[in-house]
Design a protein around this nucleic acid. Structure first.
Length: 242
RNA sequence: CCAAGUAA
């Protein structure tokens, strides 16, 4: 808890030191302690040290056995630093050790793949996920949609949101915002406008990011007047441009 | 029970 605070404040070194003194006083670090430190190290790009900590945890079982959260944080860190191949390895290790990766784990990886442009790997992963009969939740879908939009696969992205409705997962404003951005990038601003109408019909309120994205799209194709209208509408709802 | 994932 305290350590978590230090990590968030960017004082990872201090937190590590603190853990040492805890051990000297006979206080055993817990899984959460380690996990938090791993997160802190990842954020600083010190992945080797994070991996080292993971090994240390494994040798200290069962008191601080790594769990799903530990792995997810680590994989997240690896992905952020472009080491998603290693992330996949860790994922497999995790499965071998009998951990079920959960929705967060997959979200993190999907995100990592797209972030570094590895579209094919992402698709493989998603299939793998579906194959295991995995339950994809809202955030996972959103990661997927965003990824697809980034690659310009708008057809697939639209299919995905359709799938969400079918499966009873209600998309949120993030889901739609991603799509709107993708459409705008392709110059399909009219479709983006239509999509925004659709989302309100379904009772999903656009937020400031949604508005801003669409406004930018409209400006790009020179529809400054329409863009301005939107800005006013947004402001009348108390939303500020981002 | 406390630590994990998504849009500008």
């Amino acid at each position: 808890p305290v350590i978590h605070g230090f990590c968030k404040a960017g004082r990872v070194e201090y937190a590590l030191h603190l853990m040492d003194s805890m051990q000297l006083n006979g206080i055993a670090p817990t899984t959460v302690t380690y996990t938090t430190l791993i997160q802190g190290l990842c954020a600083r790009g010190e992945l080797d040290r994070a991996l080292y900590l993971l090994n240390q945890m494994k040798s200290m079982e069962p008191n601080c056995a790594p769990n799903a959260v530990t792995y997810t944080k680590l994989i997240h860190g690896l992905c952020q630093n472009g080491l998603y191949e290693l992330g996949v390895e860790i994922l497999h290790e995790m499965i071998q050790r009998g951990f079920r990766p959960n929705e967060s784990t997959y979200s993190v990886l999907i995100n990592g793949f797209y972030q570094w442009g590895d579209f094919t790997r992402a698709v493989v992963l998603v299939n793998e996920m579906g194959h295991v009969g995995y339950q994809t939740d809202l955030a996972t879908y959103n990661c997927l949609i965003n990824g697809l939009c980034k690659v310009g696969e708008m057809g697939l992205a639209m299919d995905t949101i359709g799938l969400m409705w079918e499966r009873g997962v209600t998309p949120d404003s993030s889901s739609y915002t991603g799509l709107i951005q993708g459409l705008c990038k392709k110059g399909l601003v009219d479709k983006a406008v239509g999509l925004m109408e659709e989302m309100r019909e379904k009772g999903i309120e656009p937020n400031s990011v949604t508005y801003t994205s669409l406004v930018n799209g409209l400006k790009q194709i020179g529809k400054n007047d329409v863009a301005l209208e939107l800005v006013h509408e947004m402001e009348s709802k108390g939303l500020k441009p981002v």
